[in-house]
């Protein structure tokens, strides 16, 4: 291992270090960009729930509280992830500047911060909103921080496939916060994010393959190579297209949604096919485009769901 890595490890595990982290470092621990997508999908879950924000739905103040608590809970699980993954974050170029590997926040502080904020978010959800959404939030934090981070990530190439369940739960929590019950619709929103995660993440893993290899993380491109990963990306994009049409097929959404989801999905499948047939020189560039488009795709799908409700109203 490199001297630089040894020094970084020493910095993280050194003698009683004073915490030099700023508030911005603690916010960075919560992965704010991931939080924004979590908040957005949870909001859509709330809007789509019976009553939505209407007369029989969730009061706007309770909706704001629920969204704040979901985002804080997601951020806390991210802090716990960074606490546990500090050793591999120090190796990968993408994550070397995170607060712990760079020595700005100690591992202990990140752990304490993550546990406290998780507890506050779940407790707040139970007291202010309802027990069902609190239980789902607690399960999401546990699944991400323990099942994914501690067990799956370093053990199997299916890490992000199974671990994707944690990222897929926010619209279900949003729905549960508003309706205090569950039904098929939030499970379809869950399935959409669940099947979206592998092609989204593997596109990034293709670009950062050397990083994952160096850190010994068994991402699919590391264990099975680029060709097998590209086949999986295309397969998942096609399955995803089918899953995104379920709200229309099952009668929850109208033609407006179906048309939008079809166009966006076909573009995504097209990009994945293009990526699969790209040469080695072009691959990283197209993988980057596919990764960026996948974020845009998921965002627009979750815009289309409430928009269709408005159009159909």
């Amino acid at each position: 291992m490199s001297q630089e890595y040894e020094e970084t490890l020493a910095k993280m595990q050194g003698p009683a270090s004073l915490d030099a982290g700023s508030a911005a470092d603690y916010i960075a621990l919560m992965k704010p960009r991931v939080m924004s997508l979590v908040v957005f999908t949870a909001l859509v879950g709330m809007i789509m729930a019976p009553g939505g924000f209407g007369e029989n739905g969730l009061h706007p103040v309770l909706a704001i509280a629920a969204l704040a608590l979901i985002s804080v809970g997601a951020g806390a699980s991210a802090a716990l992830n960074m606490w546990y993954d500090a050793d591999i974050d120090a190796i990968m170029t993408r994550t070397q500047n995170r607060p712990i590997p760079s020595g700005r926040v100690s591992k202990e502080s990140a752990l304490v911060f993550g546990l406290w904020v998780s507890g506050l978010a779940v407790m707040g959800m139970a007291v202010m909103i309802n027990y069902l959404s609190a239980a789902l939030l607690a399960f999401t934090i546990f699944f991400y921080a323990v099942i994914y981070t501690m067990f799956l990530k370093r053990a199997t190439a299916q890490n992000i496939v199974i671990g994707g369940a944690a990222g897929a739960l926010p619209p279900v929590i949003g729905w549960a916060a508003a309706a205090n019950s569950l039904s098929v619709e939030p499970l379809i929103y869950f399935a959409i994010i669940f099947f979206w995660t592998p092609p989204h993440f593997w596109a990034l893993a293709l670009i950062k393959n050397d990083d994952y290899k160096a850190a010994n993380v068994p991402m699919l491109p590391v264990t099975s190579g680029a060709k097998a990963t590209l086949r999986q990306i295309v397969a998942y994009s096609i399955v995803l297209l089918g899953v995104t049409l379920l709200p229309y097929i099952m009668g929850f959404s109208g033609l407006f949604y179906a048309a939008g989801a079809s166009i966006l999905g076909l573009i995504f499948v097209g990009m994945c096919v293009l990526l699969a047939f790209s040469g080695d020189e072009q691959r990283n560039r197209i993988a980057g485009m596919t990764f960026v488009y996948s974020i845009f795709y998921l965002f627009l799908l979750f815009v289309l769901l409430p928009a269709d409700k408005l159009v159909g109203a």
Partner: peptide, 22 residues
């Protein structure tokens, strides 16, 4: 540390305010 403490105080006040409002 002072800055962190100040921001933590604001965050706690927001949390208390949220509880009250809810």
């Amino acid at each position: 540390r002072r800055k962190r403490a100040a921001i933590m105080a604001v965050a706690l006040l927001v949390f208390v305010g949220l509880f009250f409002w809810v």
